[in-house]
Nucleic acid binder design. Structure first.
Lengths: 215, 215
DNA sequence: TAGATTGTTAATCGATTAACAATC
DNA sequence: TAGATTGTTAATCGATTAACAATC
């Protein structure tokens, strides 16, 4: 529809990196930067950085560069980091707990509201102010509370079923840690973190390097 | 050098997915498949799947398709999943512990040999047969034991320093969970799992969908 | 054999890079 | 003003898709 709908995923994946480096510059009191400087930090070409940013607007000043804080705020706005998000985590096993404890998210306005699990030993306990509730009560909970993002940390065997239940209750953003591709309707966005696939790629490149050394 | 060195990363990222779906087919006793069938499962085009596989060899039979088990074994060989790997985890906080507990890896031959941490309360305890050792003893440990892959789960403030120490001790494959880009020499491969960036992309697409609905 | 599906080349598409005019 | 760096168009590069001959 509008311009932004056609932005390629590759661009979107680079934005968080710009955001992070701009935050670092900001923290050390640097308030001016350039595409060349950002290129050195990120490893992306200066040309690509300018192209990326100009998908969303002209944030720089010709002959000068970019104002660090301003550019950071603009990227935050593009990504939506200027808003608050409520999160639930389904599956309070190792990964679910790790996500709930992950302090990196609290830099932005993400709040883990609750976790859900079937394990009676976990139900009733809490992690950083977020209660672990009975997985049977998810639907009831979602009827009452508005939740933006659901994190799936269940075993893969139930992940599809859990996802469908969540979508039925109005969830449209899923962060999926189960090693399974969820089949979801168009209006639901799924972001996968497939640790297995990541480790397998690493393994491939590790072996490539070993081969090279033996030549 | 040889053909494999020029395989694009996009291809390598798809291989673990093929491997996973072939495993599922195998499990339910299906022993023949085709690029069309794999296309339906993975969402990649049949043409792309054939292209991908033919980077490594002709694993199919014209007019027939692919033998599920054979193709799975071939992909395992390409990725190096037919070998054993010893892993250490540096940083035994939430994420480090979650990785150590993650059973998904044990399907292949990955073994978490030890974890390292500075926290005296953790040192001496163990997770699934892997001891948590004093982070000060990493170098000594690596001098004795051959380790293939190091997982960095430390705070980002020390991740670069830890990585350099590991590389000095001969580590050449790093799985990095710290939200930082490690500056490493050419002969070290780093696979990043940047949860922040993943969540930020998710946030972008979530907001895009909301906008679309309000039009 | 006829039908099916691979392997592979050619065509298309999209993303990245290069170049430079605009302009601060 | 001169120098610098953006914004933007054009050129290049690489990845995906289409097409089809090979062949089981």
């Amino acid at each position: 529809m509008d311009k932004q709908n056609r932005i390629s995923p590759a661009v979107i994946r680079r934005l968080p990196k710009y955001y992070r480096y701009l935050g670092e510059l900001n923290k050390v009191g640097i308030n001016k930067t350039s595409s060349r400087e950002l290129s050195e930090m990120t490893g992306f070409s200066a040309s690509q950085i300018r192209q990326d940013l100009n998908n969303f607007g002209g944030f720089g000043q010709q002959g000068f560069g970019y104002d660090v804080e301003n550019l950071r705020n603009e990227i935050a706005k593009i990504l939506g980091l200027d808003k608050k998000y409520k999160i639930i985590i389904v599956g309070a096993g190792n990964i679910g707990q790790a996500i709930a404890n992950y302090t990196g998210f609290y830099e932005a306005d993400y709040e883990v509201v609750a976790l859900f699990d079937k394990n009676p030993k976990l139900i009733g306990t809490s992690i950083r102010n977020a209660l672990i509730l009975d997985a049977d009560d998810i639907e009831e909970f979602l009827a009452k509370e508005h939740i933006d993002i659901a994190v799936i940390c269940t075993p893969k065997s139930v992940s599809q079923q859990v996802a469908e239940q969540l979508v039925k209750c109005g969830i449209r953003a899923i962060w999926n840690f189960a090693p399974k591709d969820l089949k979801m309707p168009e209006h639901v966005y799924v972001e996968n973190v497939h640790l297995n696939e990541s480790l397998f790629s690493l393994t491939y490149y590790y072996n490539q390097m070993r081969k090279k050394e033996n030549e």
